[in-house]
Design a protein around this nucleic acid. Structure first.
Ligand SMILES: [Mn+2]
Ligand SMILES: [Mn+2]
Ligand SMILES: [Zn+2]
Ligand SMILES: [Zn+2]
Lengths: 133, 133
DNA sequence: AAGATAAAGAATAACTTTTATCCATTAAGT
DNA sequence: ACTTAATGGATAAAAGTTATTCTTTATCTT
């Protein structure tokens, strides 16, 4: 695992044990919602407050350390910020996979056609994963 | 405007005045969140309950009459179900535009590459609209 | 290595958003 | 018209999120 202490500090976030545990959980699990994240954290820190989860999620989003991923018919999940990517969501088992899709050409076209300057995309493709079809 | 009385009935939804007003508002405004929708409805029906808004949104989604559109850093909006399309979201003024993007070839490729059967996409492109750049 | 201090955690209340309940009303089929 | 299941209104309850207060601590500065 990466050195998240410095990584947090570079984002002006104090490297507290709680915060490191959250980051670690996201690193290991990839995408988590507030509920599952709290469920995991309460095991490590028996007295951690749910408010701590929310406060950290919010400030880490603010500092661009993590990202929210909004999913159809499901709670949002959070993940460590990485290079821009899209998501595959299995409607049956709920699995979420990262997928690299090069959208540059498409964005360029849409940008011109619609006179719209695009600088971010949120792309979720839903269906059935390998194991669920 | 279309005949939404029959359209509702075809989806097994009783055509009540409240429901027709909601549909009409969505038809006119395109995309609305619960707050703005309630704000409009309360003008027409001074005693309408916020719960009525929620109940109708939920049942209309269930019957596939409307769709929820989840947006980054903003409340979800709702729209009448139409042919699959993507959305342009202006980060500055909040405007939402429909945009037709043919994703068939891309989906076909991703489907094969990832052994993932895709049957729905949620695609939001954010940036600055024509008036906001 | 202490000391100072701003940031963060825990506990809890408050607020926001959404859903459930109960009863009155009504759309729609007969 | 009559019947009935569905819906609306009022309200309470539940779920989700944020604010507040005080204590603790990570980090910076001696
Ligand atoms: Mn991801
Ligand atoms: Mn749309
Ligand atoms: Zn699956
Ligand atoms: Zn704009």
């Amino acid at each position: 695992m990466k050195n998240y202490i410095n990584s947090l500090r570079e984002h002006n976030l104090k490297a507290t044990p709680q915060r490191l545990a959250i980051v670690d959980a996201l690193y290991i699990n990839g995408h988590m919602n507030t509920e599952t994240l709290y469920g995991l954290m309460i095991q490590k820190f028996s007295s951690i407050s749910l408010a701590t989860i929310y406060k950290n999620i919010n400030i880490m989003i603010e500092k661009n350390f993590i990202q929210e991923v909004k999913l159809p018919h499901a709670k949002s999940v959070y993940e460590l910020t990485k290079t821009s990517h899209s998501h595959l969501l299995c409607k049956k088992c709920g699995a979420i996979e990262d997928v690299e899709i090069n959208l540059d050409v498409m964005i360029e076209n849409i940008s011109k056609t619609n006179q719209f300057q695009i600088d971010k995309t949120d792309f979720v493709l839903s269906g059935n994963c390998k194991n669920c079809q």
